[in-house]
């Protein structure tokens, strides 16, 4: 017999910050309470099996009006791989000019997640 586990989950889907419970029986979610929208329900169900987070950081820029380019993951990254992604991005450098939305890394570490430029950076002559 597998146990019935109650997980207290705090939703991070939006600034309202609903708190609730997810009950897992025999390895699958049997009941959820406290989440007031579908986004929150989806987040909570995923949080107990495979938590994921959006990742934002910076990448070095050469020849740009700014030395750093902010980048953002196009979708959430499995929590335990966040630092691997950061290491990958820290080792990189991109050349200006860069347009917002440009894919800086596609399919990072085979996770199926792209990292994109969060702003424009012009080049300096």
């Amino acid at each position: 017999m597998m146990a019935r586990v109650v997980h207290a989950i705090q939703c991070i889907g939006c600034p309202i910050g609903c708190g609730g419970e997810v009950i897992v029986e025999n390895g699958s979610v049997s009941e959820m309470t406290g989440f007031t929208c579908n986004k929150g329900l989806a987040y909570a169900a995923e949080e107990v099996v495979s938590p994921k987070r959006m990742v934002t950081t910076t990448v070095r820029v050469s020849g740009g009006s700014l030395g750093l380019l902010p980048v953002v993951s196009a979708s959430p990254v499995p929590k335990e791989r966040i630092f691997d992604c950061l290491r990958l991005l820290r080792g990189m450098s991109v050349a200006a000019p860069i347009a917002e939305g440009t894919i800086v890394v596609s399919d990072a570490l085979g996770l199926g997640v792209d990292f994109r430029a969060a702003r424009d950076i012009s080049s300096v002559q």
Binding site: C14, P15, M54, T56, T57, T58, P70, V72, E100, A118, R119, D120
Partner: peptide, 25 residues
């Protein structure tokens, strides 16, 4: 906003989660 590179901006205004620079843009 240009220094707030994290995301969480614009859910209400653009119905999308943007970074600070993304919202400014």
């Amino acid at each position: 906003l240009q220094q707030c590179i994290h995301n969480g901006f614009g859910l209400r205004r653009f119905e999308e989660e943007l970074t600070g620079p993304g919202y400014a843009h």
